[in-house]
Write a protein that binds this DNA or RNA. Structure first.
Lengths: 341, 341
DNA sequence: TGGCTGTAATAAAACGATTTACATGCCCGA
DNA sequence: TCGGGCATGTAAATCGTTTTATTACAGCCA
């Protein structure tokens, strides 16, 4: 049987209301009473019952965080940042890892509704049908990474199209002539935007449509392996690859090397994300760096603001940076220049 | 104003108690009433208020998960597994990432006490002083990875000593003669156990103490880089390295290569964990595979059992497997044999 | 003294579910 | 016909807080 406020009040010789006010400070209480309540609480080891507080005030001090795959350091890092910011405001994070399945995403949202004050959503099925009801219930939602077409929703995204255009231009400069795209699943807006941007970029540089080939692949190491295998088998002339994700790109590099290709001499490869491993593998991976830390910070701040002071949702697009490394650098090596877009 | 059970009951034309019983099934209700309540609930979009339910029943349907670093795929993978298992039982996961700091670990435990039914703790400061109070409050706690000396606590650990002994033996077989250990922070029991086991293993193989050198390093890629730099600078004769963590080992490999060493010819390297990247880098990393999936599953199951049916805590030690790869294979390559201990 | 103001304290009413204890109606055997 | 199950329903108590009235009391001024 846990210690309740009633016990504390009894021990301090005051009423329950006074004890409550002394602890929360929501109404003036004489110094002597405050002192007695505080020491009584300490002596008894009083722990406030959060459920009761929540029932009365409606504040849960929790945010829901829905992520496709914490194992991927891109999302893992964002989870870490968000958790830190939430903790600083006294919020805790209810995490759900969907493993890319729409069922788990929908189930998670349903489960979170009545347990959190707001939701930070890294969706992999941004259709809106699962999110609309949350907004109607008045629950603040901020989408991150995958864009939603839904108003009343906060959004924090990367400028995927601009990034992919820069990748195209860079691959042309690096000497690519026949291009392959490792596209992500068609449901993902990031995949669509990156593929579209890349095609646009190639067109701007005068590359013919017949010199552009694409394959769909999961956003994972294995997906990249399989995708590039299909791509190179069907179009052996490909000499430059753009992958929608670093994980795909790295899987692709390993598969290509297993197939006997030399990177970058036989095949240029460019990824997207700049996860920590991209600079560690050999050859190091040229990629588009997303400002994961900045985006996570902005998303968490926006959500907390919507929850605590009723802030309005907004949509913010972050620029990405091209980080040129060995996987697109033929001939002599050198440092890793970073180009901001 | 949200829909309450009262509204549902009114719409269904029954009492609140009947509505409750119809929804929870805790008492028999006539089929017709059940039907009316269910459809009323559906029509109104009723969402049960979890706080009220928790207040009354004392069940929070939540577990706390305290982890040092989700960015590391070893822990990230376990988080993913645990989340899946919890979700299957209708529990949600309150995650805290401590970033290895004792303050955040302590703060997290304090914050979780009144919000979860049980805690799964991957500690980095396994002193017990922060955990004892939880146990006294009757909150089930299962420690994972880092061992605690505390009874009433569940435990799921790897057999670190046996693994490290095997590493020693393997490095001797592979041709090592002067050994370096990348130890982890002294507060970590895993670091202590692995270093001790490694030393034991070397002694068993007749290696002299004077041929064993150690440096302390953080459990991270950067920690590994710095640690190996110090180690090789002070003892250039070292030709075999055992790192307490794959992250350290990989950082170490990169740093050693930057220093002009060839792996494995100049330097044998063995890690511990078998994170996914260990088989992807070049040279691929010989390591001790922890059964992360199995441990996470066991830990989650044990905790849920303690919560739901009052199961007794137990301590379980998982064996680790030596996975020999290129970083300790001089001469010709080949497949990757796995030795179970 | 009487009335007014302001400060502290308290009793009691929420919050929304679950659950206990009691009421009702019906069937059946004695 | 009466009383004892049996199946359903319901009113009301309860969980532990916060918050809203309300009360008590002192100080102050006319």
């Amino acid at each position: 049987m846990p210690v309740t406020l009633k016990d504390v009040a009894a021990r301090a010789g005051v009423s329950i209301s006074t004890a409550s006010n002394a602890l929360t400070g929501s109404r003036a209480v004489s110094a002597v009473s405050v002192e007695r309540v505080l020491s009584a609480a300490a002596e008894l080891g009083y722990q406030k019952n959060e459920a009761a507080r929540t029932l009365r005030t409606g504040l849960r001090n929790a945010i829901g965080l829905v992520v496709p795959d914490v194992t991927n350091p891109f999302w893992g890092g964002m989870v870490s940042t968000i958790d830190r910011i939430a903790a600083e405001s006294g919020f805790h994070v209810a995490l759900t890892n969907t493993e890319f399945t729409p069922q788990r995403e929908t189930a998670a949202l349903a489960r979170l509704v009545s347990r959190v004050d707001g939701i930070l959503l890294f969706s992999t099925h941004p259709t809106g049908s699962a999110v609309r009801p949350l907004l109607d219930l008045g629950i603040p939602v901020v989408a991150c990474d995958e864009a939603f077409e839904l108003d009343g929703l906060g959004g924090v995204y990367s400028d995927n199209e601009a990034g992919a255009r820069a990748a195209a231009s860079h691959l042309v400069d690096a000497g690519g002539s026949v291009f392959g795209i490792l596209e992500g699943p068609a449901t993902l807006t990031t995949a669509q935007q990156r593929a579209r941007g890349f095609r646009q970029g190639l067109q701007e540089r005068g590359v013919l449509t017949t010199d552009i080939h694409a394959a769909t692949a999961e956003y994972s190491f294995e997906g990249g392996r399989q995708g590039i295998r299909r791509l190179l088998a069907e179009n052996p002339a490909i000499d430059a690859i753009f992958a929608c994700t670093d994980n795909q790109a790295i899987g692709g590099i390993f598969e290509a090397m297993d197939m006997g290709r030399t990177i970058p001499d036989d095949l240029l490869v460019c990824g997207f994300d700049d996860i920590s491993w991209s600079s560690r593998i050999a050859p190091s991976l040229t990629t588009l760096r997303q400002d994961a830390e900045g985006m996570a910070t902005r998303a968490a701040d926006m959500l907390l603001e919507m929850i605590t002071v009723g802030g309005e949702p907004s949509v913010q697009v972050f620029p990405v940076e091209l980080v040129a490394r060995d996987s697109t650098r033929r001939g002599a090596g050198g440092e890793s220049p970073v180009t901001s877009l």
